[in-house]
């Protein structure tokens, strides 16, 4: 079976003024279908860059990036993305936001309504179809974001710290909701986060990245059955392991910041 995501020797160098910044170097990752993978790492390690290159929002400097066996180039609706800042279109209602991608595809109106209704129900926003983003809470906005991306039936869902703007309680709630949606849709998810706790709660697999230039430091499988109990021994153990890896990289990143490259 062709893996959903194949990344081989990916590297990315930015030119900032006179300096060259190597964001990624030799990054490898293979993700099979329907797997939930979290990318974790210190700031500046390039985890968001990986996501953006996959999405086609950023170009790569070197390497091979494939979705379902095909090399990716520009952005497209086969890779849906959910943003930390929600990025909803403020002048469109919930339904219209979700239908955006379908309009692009020139889907006829009746069909669009069917699809958008389906996803509105899926993310639990029934009754809010005609509301505008500014009337919604953070959690609800992100539900729209997820529904909007999913409505295009992408091969993979790329999520860039999607719950970073939410308060702790909403965040917990949304994590559970995401798992529910994931099990209903069976999408491959690549989820970038800062939070170890979140990663352990959500992921099948946690990829810890090194400090800049980013590459894979450790690939930790999380075998715990869901729903996961944050207070359980196993959870705490995995968490500890991941933290240990991460702390070292944090130190390295700090050191790098203090000494100019």
């Amino acid at each position: 079976m062709t893996p959903c995501i194949e990344i081989e020797s990916l590297s990315k160098t930015f030119i900032k003024g006179r300096k060259e910044v190597r964001a990624l170097a030799d990054f490898d990752l293979v993700v099979p279908d329907a797997q939930f993978v979290c990318l974790l790492g210190p700031s500046g390690c390039g985890k968001t860059t990986v996501l953006r290159i996959l999405a086609g929002l950023e170009s790569k400097s070197f390497g091979v990036v494939k979705i379902k066996g095909k090399e990716v180039a520009r952005a497209g609706s086969d890779r849906g993305m959910v943003f930390q800042e929600f990025a909803l279109f403020p002048w469109r209602s919930v339904r219209k936001n979700i239908e955006f991608g379908l309009e692009i595809k020139k889907m006829p109106e009746a069909e669009r309504r069917e699809v958008s209704s389906k996803y509105i129900d899926l993310v639990g926003l029934g009754g809010f179809e005609d509301a505008h983003p500014k009337e919604l809470s953070g959690g609800m906005k992100q539900r729209v974001g997820i529904a909007r991306a999913l409505a295009n039936e992408p091969a993979v869902l790329l999520m860039d710290e999607p719950f970073g703007s939410l308060d702790a309680q909403t965040r917990n709630l949304m994590q559970k909701e995401l798992l529910r949606i994931w099990s209903a849709t069976k999408k491959t998810i690549l989820f970038v986060t800062h939070s170890v706790d979140e990663a352990v709660f959500l992921a099948d697999r946690i990829v810890v990245m090194t400090a800049r230039p980013g590459m894979v430091r450790e690939d930790i499988g999380v075998d715990l059955p869901r729903p996961r109990d944050r207070t359980s021994k196993e959870f705490i153990s995995v968490r500890g392991k991941v933290l240990a890896e991460l702390d070292e990289e944090f130190e390295k990143a700090r050191a790098k910041e203090l000494s100019p490259d």
Partner: peptide, 18 residues
Amino acid sequence: VEPTLMDAAKTLGAGRGQ
């Protein structure tokens, strides 16, 4: 125009004209 809105549109399949 917020760049993230443009990014979102791109990931939803919009071309330049759209």
